[in-house]
Write a protein that binds this DNA or RNA. Sequence first.
DNA 1: CAGATTGATGCGCGTAATGCAAATGGGATC
DNA 2: GATCCCATTTGCATTACGCGCATCAATCTG
Lengths: 270, 270
Amino acid sequence: MADEPASSLRRALDLLDALASDDAVAQGGWGVSRLAAQQGRDKSQVSRTLRVLADAGFVERDAGSMAYRIGWHVFALAARAADQRLLAAGAPILRRLVEKDLGERIHLSVLQGPEVLTILTETPPHAVQTVAWAGRLVPAHNTSSGRALLIDHDRDELERLLAGAVFGVGGPNAPADVNALFERILVARRQGFAIIDEEFEPGLVAAAAPVRGFRGEVVAALNVSAPKFRLGARLPLAGQAIKAAADELSRELGYDARRPTSLVARARAG
Amino acid sequence: MADEPASSLRRALDLLDALASDDAVAQGGWGVSRLAAQQGRDKSQVSRTLRVLADAGFVERDAGSMAYRIGWHVFALAARAADQRLLAAGAPILRRLVEKDLGERIHLSVLQGPEVLTILTETPPHAVQTVAWAGRLVPAHNTSSGRALLIDHDRDELERLLAGAVFGVGGPNAPADVNALFERILVARRQGFAIIDEEFEPGLVAAAAPVRGFRGEVVAALNVSAPKFRLGARLPLAGQAIKAAADELSRELGYDARRPTSLVARARAG
DNA sequence: CAGATTGATGCGCGTAATGCAAATGGGATC
DNA sequence: GATCCCATTTGCATTACGCGCATCAATCTG
């Protein structure tokens, strides 16, 4: 719980988030009133905050509709967001995986608090509709990426990280609590990759493996997900392929598997 | 220059900017003291502001060095709003192209599997018939937009993507097979834009250039097409104009041509 | 161990964010 | 053109909260 006092800065950042929501994007941006109502704030202050954000280029407003949308500055910053090496080195590996090995949707994700952020997606050409997954957040505790990203966490760390998470939802096999999750993490740790069978969504299976940085800590996860009827049978094989690719990516980031990692890897949990 | 009172929000945003500077990025992020000195602010408040930014995910800190960097959350914002911005920033550029530069029909399109989907059109006033092109699908292999959208693809990727495509149809100069297409893509790659001369339809010429997103990957294509008797003579010039406009749009999407984001592009090429 | 550096925190002070209310500015409809 | 209605901005009194100073803990250096 412990709702922070919510500083004025935090409230401003929440406005940016709201403008990047599916609804706001789909409607070509939101006006002051809509934003104020949605955020439970007074219109006046929202108006003033947006003016500052607009002056700084973080939002911009449509000349006709007066609606605000995310501005150029955010895109410029995003281009310099954390570890571009991960993106640069990851892209070709994802492509190869989807084309040569698996023929299913491949994602590269990082941990964002108790959730998983997809930063790169590669879709097979035959895919009918491409849902834009990049930039989306999903829970960490019932997804394959999440399991891979948490593979070094011990029970206490899990407990703390997932204090607010809702267990037992998603697919029929979703873990019921932290203990169940930890058990499955131990399995993943043993075999080097995680297998998910209808935990996140009914009928969906997935496999994921951790990507490590040069210090040995988990920096990302590579995963494949697909309908059970298509991927189910060869899921263990897919896991192996994903793990091989993740290991390759780790090497490109400077990770040396022979060096001991546990100490440094643990440091990131705080 | 009437310096604004500089609200606290503005100061916080300036911190993000500072963290996105070349120096900061090159050094893997900056610490509190460095940032405070560079911004002429007190360490204490920089520390507190960064804590809020970090809680919101807008910055993240390196566990070892304590240095702050732009966080993945910014990336997520940009990724989710990317499509919106493509449309918003694209519209005026299309309008300007058709009014000032070319006086012919301009399209903005994206790749949809092996086909090209037009998402924005601008028509010159003198146009007799206004066919609604937006929402239409055309083949990728014998259109200028398609060529621009496939400009980073290598031969193998083309082969897989266009496995079901019918070659040798459309105009008299339509590419006969994947090899012929790839040859022409190489030409387009060299000059930065694609020229089509009666490939899609007899008597029709076109020029197109790729638009890149903040990650450096091709997200759309800008193109002009017109009857050969009207545009044929100045087609190379039109190509240059289209390329210039596409580059401008890319910049508005956060693409920085100087940065080696081309790693992503190059890696695709092989 | 002294000395320097870096980041976090306690605490009064004063600025700048806040909420209410009123004003402004279009678009509608009649 | 007069009257509403909606969205956005602005005026203003109040005070929360951002601010700088000083202090403290933790690391690094020599």
